[in-house]
């Protein structure tokens, strides 16, 4: 009879393993979709553009910093903090599976970094364009 206990225990563990949530709460595409929902509310919204996102990422916006000041011109490469020199892991999801996998973390860093670079919040259009661009960057 004991084999029944073992078998059911094994079944339970297998099921638990299969049902286990993946380590990341969201995928970059899910996050892009939720930014799109935000942007859709804006009049005249016509979707995201990776080309526009690339231009936005690399440009200065009235201040000394651009996104690429820390994340470099190649978002698949290691970045470096402009002030402290601390190494920053690649920001492009194709090069770093951890990026854009946590909506809270994405919101936090857009808030901080857009404040630093643009002295304002990024619009959903801008965020979407940038993410669309980052998703196209080859490793």
């Amino acid at each position: 009879m004991s084999y029944l206990y073992y078998a059911s225990g094994l079944a339970l563990i297998t099921l638990a393993g299969l049902a286990a949530q993946p380590a990341f709460a969201e995928t970059p595409n899910e996050i892009l979709a939720s930014i799109q929902k935000e942007a859709a509310g804006t009049p005249g919204f016509q979707g995201f553009s990776a080309a526009r996102g690339e231009g936005f990422f690399k440009a200065k916006h009235g201040n000394e910093l651009s996104c690429s000041s820390c994340h470099t011109e190649n978002p698949a490469a290691l970045g470096k903090h402009a002030k402290t020199g601390k190494v920053i892991q690649p920001i492009a999801p194709p090069a770093n599976a951890e990026r854009f996998s946590d909506a809270g973390k994405v919101a936090k860093w857009f808030k901080r970094n857009c404040n630093d670079v643009l002295e304002r919040a990024c619009t959903p259009q801008e965020k979407g364009d940038v993410l669309a661009y980052l998703l196209t960057v080859k490793k």
Partner: peptide
């Protein structure tokens, strides 16, 4: 933290 030595480092 919003103005943390020149950077926005704000937390929830």
């Amino acid at each position: 933290l919003g103005k943390h030595f020149g950077s926005d480092a704000s937390l929830t």
